[in-house]
C-alpha cells in the first residue's frame, strides 16, 4: 500500500513538472509572436516617418502633380490613425484588418508617386531623392522580412501547440493557435511600390 502511494505521488510529480515545462515553453513562444509583431509595428512607423520627407523633396519638382502628393499625405494620415488604434487593441481582428487596409492604401499611393517620378529626370537625379528612395526600398524589405519573421514564429508556436503530447497541455490551458499574416489578398495588393532609381 505504502509503495503504491509513493509510486502514485512520484507519477503525479513527474507529470506536473512535465506539464509546467511545456506550459513555460508555450508561453515563451507566444511572447515571441508578440515581439515579432512589435517589429512589424516599428517598421510601419519608419515608413510613416519617411513619407513627409519624400513628399517634401518631390514637391519641389512635381509642381503639377499636387493631387498625387496630397493622396500620399492623406493615406499616411489614415495609416497613422489606424496604427494607433491597432496599438491600443493589438488582439482585435477588426483593428488589425483596418491597419492592413490603410497600409495597403499607403503602399499604393507611394507606388503611384514613384511611377510619376519616373517621368521627371531632374527629380530622379536629385541626391536626396536617391537617398530617400533607397530608404523606401529598404523599409519595404524590412517590412517583408519582419512579416516573414512573424510568420516563422507563428509556425513554431502552432507546431508546438498542435503536436502530441504538448497538444494536451495547450488544450487544457486554452492556448489558441495563432493566425499567420497573409501578405496579399488579391493581385492589386501584391503590387509593391516600384522604386527604380
Amino acid at each position: 500500500m505504502m509503495i503504491l502511494t509513493w509510486g502514485l505521488l512520484i507519477v503525479v510529480a513527474v507529470l506536473l513538472v512535465w506539464g509546467v515545462a511545456i506550459y513555460n515553453r508555450l508561453v515563451q513562444l507566444r511572447n515571441r509572436i508578440a515581439n515579432a509583431f512589435g517589429q512589424i509595428d516599428v517598421q510601419l512607423k519608419r515608413r510613416h516617418d519617411l513619407v513627409p520627407n519624400l513628399v517634401e523633396v518631390a514637391r519641389a519638382y512635381l509642381a503639377h502633380e499636387s493631387a498625387t502628393l496630397e493622396a500620399v499625405i492623406r493615406a499616411r494620415g489614415q495609416a497613422q490613425t489606424a496604427a494607433a488604434a491597432a496599438r491600443a487593441q493589438p488582439t482585435s481582428a477588426a483593428s488589425i484588418g483596418a491597419l492592413a487596409l490603410a497600409e495597403n492604401a499607403l503602399g499604393g499611393s507611394l507606388g503611384r508617386l514613384m511611377a510619376v517620378a519616373e517621368n521627371y529626370p531632374d527629380l530622379k537625379a536629385d541626391a536626396t531623392m536617391k537617398s530617400l528612395s533607397e530608404e523606401l526600398t529598404s523599409t519595404e524589405n524590412r517590412l517583408g522580412f519582419a512579416r516573414q519573421a512573424y510568420n516563422d514564429q507563428v509556425l513554431d508556436f502552432n507546431n508546438e501547440a498542435t503536436q502530441f503530447p504538448d497538444l494536451i497541455v495547450a488544450r487544457l490551458l486554452g492556448f489558441a493557435t495563432a493566425a499567420m499574416l497573409e501578405a496579399t489578398r488579391n493581385e492589386a495588393e501584391r503590387a509593391a511600390p516600384q522604386v527604380r532609381f
Binding site: K130, E134, T137, S138, F145, A149
Partner: peptide, 19 residues
Amino acid sequence: SQAEQRFCNVLDELCIAGG
C-alpha cells in the same frame, strides 16, 4: 556614399530576417 547607405540598410534588413 549611396553604396554604403545601401550596405547599412541591407544589413539592418537581414538582422530583422535572421533575428
